[in-house]
C-alpha cells in the first residue's frame, strides 16, 4: 500500500492538468468565433428603435465588463480564470439576467441523477447477466437473454425511447411521458415527491438501460468464457472450492477488471449521451438546456456547460482510476 499515496498524487496532478487544458481550449474556441456576444446583444437591444450613440457606447462598456471582455486578450484570460475558479460564468443571454451557473446548477441534478442511475443499472444488470450467461453456458433462460440482448444492441437509443413513448404514452398510457415531475407539484423531501420523480424517470431510464445492456452483456459473456478456461478456475473446480465462490471471487472478479474501465468511459459520456433522451422525454436536464442554448446562440451558457462537462468527465475518470488498484492488486505494483 506504500505506493498508493504517490499514485494518488500523480493521478490528481494529471486530473488538474487535463481540466486546465480542456478549459483553455474552450476559452480559445469561444474567443476565436466570429460571433461577438456584445455586438449581438446590442443589435438585439437596438433593433426596435433608435438609441443615442452615447447610450450604445455605455451599454457596450457595461456588457464587456459583464462578459469579462475588457482589455487585451491576456487580461481577458486572467478575468476568465478568476471567474471560473469561483464558478461564475457570467449572465445567460437567453435568460438574462439569470447567471449561467444558476441555470446549470438547476439542470445538473436532473441529468446526473438520470444518467448515474441508468448507467450503473445498465452496468450491473449487463455484467451480472453476461457473467452468468458466460458461466452457465447451457442455461436455456440465459441463452434466450443473450439473443434478446443481441437483438436490442444495434437499435439506436432514441428509437427505443420513441417506441417506449408510443407504447406507454399512447397505446397503454400508464406512465408519464414528459417532464421531471408533475407540474406545479410542491417540491420537498417527502415520499410523494420522490415517488413522483421515480415514476417520471422510469421511461427515460428504461430506454437508456435497454439501449446500453447489450454491449455490457456480450462483453462480459465473452470475458467470462475466457476466464473459465484459466488455470486458476480449473484448479479451484478440481479443489472442490464452493461454486458460488468460484463464480464470484474467481470468475467474475477477474473478468470485471476491464469492465470497470468501460464503466469510466460510459460515466464520462454522461454529458453527451442523454441529449436526445432528455429531448424526447422533455426532461429538464443539461441536455435540454444545451440544445436550447445552442438554438438561441447563448454563448456563455454553452461555455459554462462545456466547462462543467470537462470537469465532470475528468473527475469520473479520476475516480475510477483511484478505485482500480483496489480491484486489481496488480495495478498497484507500478
Amino acid at each position: 500500500m506504500r505506493g498508493y499515496p504517490a499514485y494518488l498524487i500523480g493521478r490528481l496532478g494529471q486530473f488538474l492538468l487535463v481540466v486546465f487544458i480542456g478549459i483553455n481550449i474552450a476559452f480559445v474556441v469561444t474567443h476565436a468565433t466570429p460571433i461577438d456576444p456584445v455586438e449581438q446583444t446590442i443589435a438585439a437591444a437596438t433593433q426596435f428603435g433608435a438609441t443615442s450613440p452615447e447610450a450604445i457606447a455605455m451599454m457596450r462598456q457595461s456588457l464587456k465588463e459583464l462578459y469579462g471582455l475588457e482589455g487585451s486578450l491576456w487580461e481577458q484570460y486572467a478575468t476568465f480564470w478568476r471567474r471560473v475558479s469561483v464558478g461564475d460564468f457570467g449572465p445567460s443571454l437567453s435568460a438574462f439576467p439569470a447567471p449561467v451557473s444558476t441555470l446549470i446548477l438547476r439542470a445538473l441534478p436532473w441529468t446526473v441523477g438520470l444518467l448515474t442511475v441508468s448507467t450503473l443499472l445498465t452496468w450491473v444488470i449487463g455484467n451480472l447477466l453476461g457473467g452468468l450467461a458466460g458461466y452457465y453456458l447451457r442455461s436455456r433462460t440465459l441463452r434466450f437473454a443473450g439473443i434478446l440482448a443481441m437483438a436490442l444492441h444495434p437499435i439506436p437509443y432514441y428509437i427505443i425511447a420513441f417506441v417506449l413513448l408510443i407504447v406507454f404514452g399512447y397505446l397503454w398510457p400508464v406512465l408519464p411521458i414528459t417532464g421531471g415531475h408533475t407540474m406545479n407539484m410542491q417540491r420537498g423531501f417527502n415520499l410523494a415527491f420522490i415517488g413522483n420523480l421515480a415514476i417520471h424517470s422510469i421511461l427515460p431510464i428504461t430506454s437508456l438501460v435497454l439501449a446500453g445492456l447489450g454491449g455490457w452483456f456480450m462483453g462480459m459473456r465473452a470475458l467470462v468464457s475466457n476466464v473459465v478456461t484459466e488455470d486458476y478456475v480449473v484448479y479451484a473446480e478440481l479443489g472442490g472450492v464452493r461454486p458460488q465462490r468460484i463464480l464470484g471471487s474467481y470468475v467474475m472478479r477477474n473478468a470485471l477488471v476491464p469492465q470497470v474501465t468501460g464503466l469510466a468511459m460510459s460515466l464520462g459520456a454522461i454529458f453527451t449521451g442523454a441529449i436526445i433522451t432528455e429531448q424526447v422525454f422533455g426532461y429538464p436536464g443539461i441536455g435540454t438546456l444545451l440544445v436550447s442554448a445552442v438554438h438561441v446562440g447563448d454563448y456563455s451558457l454553452v461555455l459554462g456547460i462545456a466547462t462543467v462537462s470537462i470537469v465532470a468527465v475528468s473527475f469520473a475518470v479520476l475516480l475510477i482510476d483511484l478505485l482500480y488498484p483496489l480491484l486489481d492488486p496488480r495495478v498497484k505494483a507500478r
Binding site: 486458476y232 484448479y235 471471487s249 477477474n254 492488486p329 496488480r330
Partner: peptide, 22 residues
C-alpha cells in the same frame, strides 16, 4: 499439482484466501 501450476493461484486474491478457499 497442475500443469502450468504457476498460474493456479487467483491473481486478485491473496495467497491466504486461496488456502481458505481450498
Amino acid at each position: 499439482i497442475m500443469q502450468g501450476s504457476m498460474n493456479v493461484l487467483n491473481p486478485v486474491r491473496r495467497v491466504r484466501n486461496s488456502f481458505v478457499d481450498f
